[in-house]
C-alpha cells in the first residue's frame, strides 16, 4: 500500500492531470517570491561596504548558478529512476530538465561575466566556479545533443539517461580537479559568495530568490512534462478522453 503513490506517479494520465493541477501552486508563489526578492535585493538590501551597489548582481547570479546545479541533479536522479525502474515518465522529466538547466547555466555565465568586469577588471577570469559552470553547460549540451541524435524516443531516453548518470558521477570529480588546477596557477579568487558573515539584510533577499527560482523551476518543469507526456502517449486512448472532457 505504501508504494501506491509511486506507481500512480508512473501512470501518464494521473501525472498529466496532477501536473496541470499543481502548476499554479508553484507558479504564483514563485512569481511573488522572485518579484519580492528582486525588489528587496535592488532596493532594500544595503550596499556592500567593498563592492558598493555592484554586489547586487549576486541576487541574480547566485540563484542562476544554483538552478544550473540543482536542475542537473534533478535530471540525473530522474534519469536514474527511468533507467533502473524502466519508468517512461521519469525519462520525460529528465528530457524536460535539460533546456531549463542549460538556459540558467547561460545566465550564470553571463551574470558572472557582468560581475567580473567591475570586480576583477576583466569580463572573463578562469575562476574555478565560472570554469565549472562552463563545463556544466557543455554537459547539458552533450545530453541534449545525444538525445537529438536519435529518432527513436526509447533509445534517446535510455542513452541520454546513462550519459546523465555518468555526468553526475563526474561533476564532483571535474569540479575538484578544476579547483586544484586553479589553486596552482593563480591567487585565490577575489569573488566571495555566500560568506557566512553576510548580514541578514543582504542574506534574506538571496534566500527568498533561491526559493523562488526553485519553485519557478518546478512550475516550468510541470508544464514541459505535460507536453512531453502528450507527445509520448499520442497513440493512446486516454488522451482523446481527457481532451474531450
Amino acid at each position: 500500500m505504501r508504494w501506491t503513490w509511486f506507481h500512480r506517479l508512473a501512470s501518464p494520465p494521473y501525472l498529466y492531470a496532477l501536473a496541470a493541477r499543481l502548476t499554479p501552486w508553484f507558479a504564483w508563489p514563485a512569481a511573488l517570491l522572485i518579484l519580492g526578492g528582486l525588489y528587496a535585493g535592488l532596493v532594500l538590501a544595503p550596499p556592500d561596504y567593498q563592492q558598493g551597489e555592484g554586489f547586487r548582481i549576486i541576487y541574480v547570479h547566485v540563484p542562476s548558478a544554483w538552478m544550473s546545479l540543482m536542475v542537473y541533479v534533478t535530471m540525473g536522479v530522474a534519469a536514474a529512476v527511468g533507467l533502473i525502474w524502466r519508468m517512461k515518465i521519469a525519462h520525460a522529466v529528465a528530457a524536460s530538465c535539460a533546456p531549463i538547466g542549460a538556459s540558467f547555466t547561460v545566465v550564470a555565465l553571463v551574470t558572472g561575466a557582468l560581475y567580473g568586469k567591475p570586480m576583477w577588471g576583466t569580463w572573463w577570469e578562469w575562476d574555478p566556479r565560472l570554469t565549472s559552470e562552463l563545463i556544466l553547460l557543455f554537459l547539458y549540451l552533450g545530453f541534449m545533443g545525444l538525445r537529438a541524435g536519435f529518432d527513436d524516443t526509447q533509445r534517446a531516453d535510455r542513452s541520454g539517461a546513462l550519459l546523465a548518470i555518468v555526468g553526475m558521477v563526474n561533476v564532483p570529480i571535474i569540479h575538484y580537479s578544476v579547483i586544484w588546477w586553479n589553486s596552482l596557477h593563480q591567487a585565490p579568487s577575489v569573488m566571495r559568495f555566500g560568506k557566512p558573515a553576510m548580514p541578514p539584510a543582504m542574506l534574506v533577499p538571496l534566500l527568498v530568490l533561491l526559493l523562488g527560482f526553485t519553485l519557478f523551476f518546478a512550475a516550468v518543469l510541470l508544464v514541459r512534462v505535460r507536453a512531453e507526456i502528450l507527445q509520448r502517449e499520442r497513440a493512446t486512448r486516454w488522451i482523446g478522453e481527457t481532451l474531450r472532457a
Partner: peptide
C-alpha cells in the same frame, strides 16, 4: 557529438 560528450569528462585527465 562524440567530442562534446567525451571532452568534458576527460578534463580531469587533462588537468
Amino acid at each position: 557529438l562524440l567530442a562534446l560528450l567525451t571532452l568534458p569528462l576527460s578534463l580531469p585527465v587533462l588537468i
